[in-house]
């Protein structure tokens, strides 16, 4: 009864894909939602995909109780340093990281549930001037931190019970690393974007910095979201949060750029632009597989198929307030894609795509 169909509002009448509202949850105690994510939670032999919401001072875990009904399982109180973002650990269970700080990330904490003694805990993982952090497969976290003299790029891995194991250091590039992305299909490769608009490649096993490739002046201030290796090329999905609209490039939210790691040359493959006639530009977004979602300055959420370079669905801003967050949920392969769209008042809507 609560589900409603929201057909994509596209001027050319495309209705191939749509977003179906599955359920809605509202954190009544939170007046300012900062981030939203998902986390597998296993207790008493039951494993469920739960929603994690963050406000400035706490992070809450929500489990599904029934159709359109969510119950708050636990809230981690995080003290005086504000939460900046949730850093999910893909494929992990009962574990998630959270980044805290003022303007920049000052510390990363691990939030965990111990099924052995049915208790929720948190522990400090890293402190410093942290510029970027990403959860990797196999319960690992990579982060870059900077002092005046040097940059550290480090990986910490966790056991199933959340204990930190020996870390690994990756060779840092000269420039500050602004974002990381795993390379799909290449377990030992990691890419990053830097403050001077380069893409770098590491070998995760040895820590070697393998290559630095300039993205090109037509794609300013790039942030990497995802990478794929195919046919000897490295395809990197980039967004440009600070880019201005230009006549030559239009107003793209995401771009797929092909790099030849052997020669460091690159070429743009596809640009995923805002729907025609839609004002505003990219604010923030998320990529999973070939799907990208972004919040636009208009308050709308747009979804693109990156293989087609086409906007396939759009959530209008709504009568009250616009959307603030758009994240893809971790899901089983059989359940398809699920979009989490969040509003600043703490309302999170789950859409099946």
């Amino acid at each position: 009864a609560v589900a409603e169909q929201l057909a994509p509002v596209l001027p050319d009448g495309l209705r191939e894909e749509s977003l179906q509202l599955v359920s809605k949850l509202k954190d009544c105690s939170s007046s300012c939602a900062v981030d939203v994510s998902t986390m597998w939670w296993e207790a008493a032999g039951c494993r469920e995909l739960c929603v994690v919401t963050a406000c400035e001072s706490s992070v809450s875990l929500w489990k599904p109780l029934g159709p359109n009904c969510w119950g708050r399982v636990y809230t981690w109180q995080l003290g005086e340093i504000p939460v900046i973002q949730i850093v999910p650990l893909p494929d992990s269970c009962n574990l998630a990281c959270v980044a805290l700080g003022d303007l920049e990330i000052g510390e990363i904490r691990l939030l965990l549930y111990s099924s052995e003694n049915d208790s929720f805990k948190q522990s400090l993982v890293r402190t410093g001037n942290i510029k970027a952090a990403l959860g990797l497969k196999d319960r690992r976290l990579v982060s870059s931190s900077r002092t005046v003299q040097e940059q550290h790029v480090e990986i910490v891995s966790f056991s199933e019970t959340g204990r930190s194991r020996d870390g690994q250091t990756l060779m840092p590039p000269e420039e500050t690393v602004s974002a990381f992305a795993e390379v799909e299909g290449m377990r030992d490769a990691l890419v990053g974007t830097t403050a001077v608009n380069s893409v770098v490649i590491w070998n995760l096993k040895t820590g070697q910095l393998l290559k630095k490739m300039h993205v090109g002046y037509s794609y300013p201030a790039s942030i990497c979201h995802q990478a794929y290796s195919d046919s000897g090329l490295l395809f990197v999905v980039l967004s440009h949060p600070h880019a201005k609209e230009s006549e030559s490039c239009g107003n793209p939210a995401f771009r797929v750029v092909a790099f030849n790691p052997s020669t460091a040359r690159s070429s743009g493959v596809l640009a995923s632009s805002l729907p025609p006639g839609h004002a505003g530009r990219y604010l923030e977004g998320d990529v999973r597989g070939a799907l990208a979602a972004a919040v636009l300055t208009s308050g709308a959420v747009a979804v693109w198929d990156l293989l087609l370079g086409q906007c396939t669905a759009l959530l209008p801003p709504g009568p009250a307030r616009g959307w603030a967050l758009a994240r893809w949920a971790s899901t089983d392969a059989c359940t398809g894609a699920c979009l989490l769209a969040g509003q600043r008042d703490g309302t999170v809507c789950l859409y099946r795509y």
Partner: peptide
């Protein structure tokens, strides 16, 4: 994009870069 834009492509680029890069 064509090979002429990007230069010669190697299917084993990762292994080759690992062999070339400083340890």
């Amino acid at each position: 994009c064509s090979e002429s834009d990007l230069g010669p492509i190697s299917l084993n680029w990762f292994e080759e870069l690992c062999a070339e890069a400083p340890p």
